[in-house]
Computed example of a mutant assay.
Amino acid sequence: MTPLPAFDPATECPPPGRFPLTWDDVDSELVKADDFAESSTRGGLLEELRFHFALVETATGAVGRLWLAGSFVSGKMDPEDVDVTYLIPPDAYARAMAEADIVDDLDNLGTKDWCVRHGMRVDAYVLRLPETEDFRALGVTGAMAPDDHKVFEHLGVYDEIWQRCRGGQDGIPRGARRGYVEVLL
């Protein structure tokens, strides 16, 4: 994989965009990099995220990929948590949503307070990936799988959220944008 681009000095985050990394890349770029050698939280956060990922994967049966954002994907030496969005394949998502116990498990895994009480500093969201695979036909009436328009809307909302900075804090200009990481599985 291509390494994560240098952080923008104004935001201390990657430049706007989504950057694909493997788990090993995440470890080397956001935990073991020389810039983070003195971090007291990054190693533990990655371990907690991997454990959280295993729980989500067990509950759903599959995770297609995940997005990492927030202070973990920034120059902050000691982030307090990891912001993650899990993207679940549509068939696995449908199976999971058909089981009340799994819905409850995913609700817990997506509740930051629950995660913290269980030793995971993770702020998680679970989204379904679209069923529509042939994107050439998206503009054709009836070509998109039922309910996929809502799926695309949710994905777009989280893409927009993860690329926004909290402008006006710590000298970050208002309207500043940032990048985030897509972990490829």
Rank of each mutant, 00 (worst) to 15 (best):
L138F: 10
D8E: 12
F36V: 07
F53H: 10
K150I: 13
G175M: 07
G110S: 13
E12Y: 14
R164P: 00
S71A: 12
G64N: 03
P5I: 03
H154K: 12
A94W: 03
R128P: 04
A100M: 12
G171T: 08
G142F: 13
L184A: 09
C165E: 11
L4Y: 06
K32E: 01
P15M: 04
L21S: 03
D147I: 00
R117W: 13
G61R: 06
Y93M: 12
P3R: 15
A59I: 12
D25H: 15
E153F: 14
H149I: 11
R65N: 09
A124T: 03
R166G: 00
D35F: 15
Y125V: 14
I172L: 05
F53L: 04
H118T: 11
A145H: 09
G44W: 11
Y180T: 03
K76Q: 01
M1N: 08
R178A: 07
I102M: 08
A37G: 02
M144V: 09
R174K: 13
D113N: 09
Y125T: 12
E57Q: 12
H52W: 08
P16V: 06
D105G: 02
V31H: 08
S28Q: 15
V116M: 08
T41N: 10
V63L: 10
P9A: 14
A54H: 01
G179K: 14
Y158C: 06
A98S: 12
G110E: 02
E57S: 11
V151T: 14
E182S: 06
T111A: 02
G171K: 13
E131K: 06
T11A: 01
D34Y: 14
A94T: 10
E131S: 06
A10L: 09
V26R: 15
L21F: 04
G156H: 13
Q169G: 01
P146M: 01
A54N: 03
R128V: 06
Y158A: 04
A143G: 02
R177S: 05
F19G: 03
E12W: 15
P5Y: 03
G43N: 07
E99Y: 05
A145Q: 03
P90N: 04
L185W: 13
F72C: 01
D81S: 06
V181A: 05
I161C: 01
E160A: 09
P14N: 14
